[in-house]
């Protein structure tokens, strides 16, 4: 056997290893979701969705958690979307390269790497205690907004950077001001990418548990919140709570709630991926 032959065998072998590794991740995912599906599917019905929490697993439902999740989704979007997009625009279009922008850049990259539970500690002190919002929806949503801000900023910047400079020059060349150029040309051209980032960020917020636990979101909230200052729970916290209980009935509930939570996140991610692809195809500069 010559070396060339051995090398070819090795080459083929690694190709197989790579394929197996790739499939392994996906198969594990399928298996785990399959298990959850098997466990929780039968539990999902209208009663489960409409019922308030209860000490008896078969009577307990996710109504308050679902309402809390919707509230959180709504409020977090309101806070983080304008802030994140504005910051992205500022960093990409207004700042000249300087020490200050270097600092801002390191800062955003660092914030993206701060563990979510640390944001919880920040929210607990600043929103919960100093602004006296306690464990309200508002405190939770503000905390999550800061958490997802870096995601929106980074994707906004990437999307803006993808807009060819010739478009900018064409607009300036016609006498458009900076903001007119941004508003009329750059934002429409990068909207697909920005929206993708926003959806991914919000989907992250919907799945977060730890920071809300620290801020003090409660596992047992008997009524759906009716204002941003009310106490609340969300799906992930409800799931966490059910997992921690010994009775088998609650882990079935947890599985059912997980199925709903996964459906929400997968739909949001699916939309984001779809938007990204469509946007990439449409703007093939």
């Amino acid at each position: 056997m010559n070396r060339g032959y051995i090398n070819r065998i090795k080459d083929k072998a690694f190709g197989l290893v790579g394929l197996i590794a790739t499939l392994f991740g996906l198969l594990i995912l399928t298996f785990l979701i399959g298990q959850v599906f098997y466990e929780g599917y039968n539990r999902i019905d209208l009663d489960f969705i409409k019922s308030l929490p209860s000490r008896k697993p078969e009577k307990a439902g996710i109504y308050t958690a679902l309402a809390g999740t919707v509230w959180i989704l709504f409020l977090t979007t309101i806070f983080s979307l304008p802030l994140g997009i504005s910051t992205g625009i500022y960093l990409e279009e207004y700042t000249k390269k300087s020490r200050f922008t270097d600092l801002l850049e390191i800062n955003v990259s660092n914030l993206a790497g701060v563990p979510s539970i640390i944001y919880g500690l920040l929210g607990l002190e600043v929103f919960g205690r100093m602004l006296n919002l306690g464990n309200s929806l508002l405190a939770g949503a503000l905390t999550l907004s800061l958490l997802v801000l870096p995601i929106i900023i980074v994707t906004t910047r990437e999307a803006i950077r993808a807009v060819p400079n010739s478009l900018r020059m064409a607009s300036y060349g016609l006498g458009a001001s900076k903001w007119q150029t941004i508003w009329e040309q750059i934002l429409p051209a990068s909207m697909g990418g920005i929206l993708t980032g926003v959806i991914l960020a919000i989907s992250r917020a919907v799945g977060e548990t730890a920071p809300l636990l620290v801020v003090g979101a409660l596992a047992y909230v008997p009524f759906a919140p009716s204002s941003p200052l009310d106490e609340f729970t969300v799906l992930p916290i409800q799931i966490f709570n059910w997992i921690s209980r010994p009775q088998h009935g609650f882990s079935v509930n947890a599985a059912a709630a997980i199925l709903l939570l996964l459906t929400i996140t997968f739909i949001m991610n699916g939309v984001a991926v779809y938007l990204r692809n469509r946007w990439q195809k449409k703007h093939n500069w």
Partner: peptide, 14 residues
């Protein structure tokens, strides 16, 4: 606005 410009590569807006 007074001094218009045409660039090397056509760059119409989308």
């Amino acid at each position: 606005a007074n001094v218009g410009m045409v660039f090397q590569k056509p760059n119409p807006f989308p």
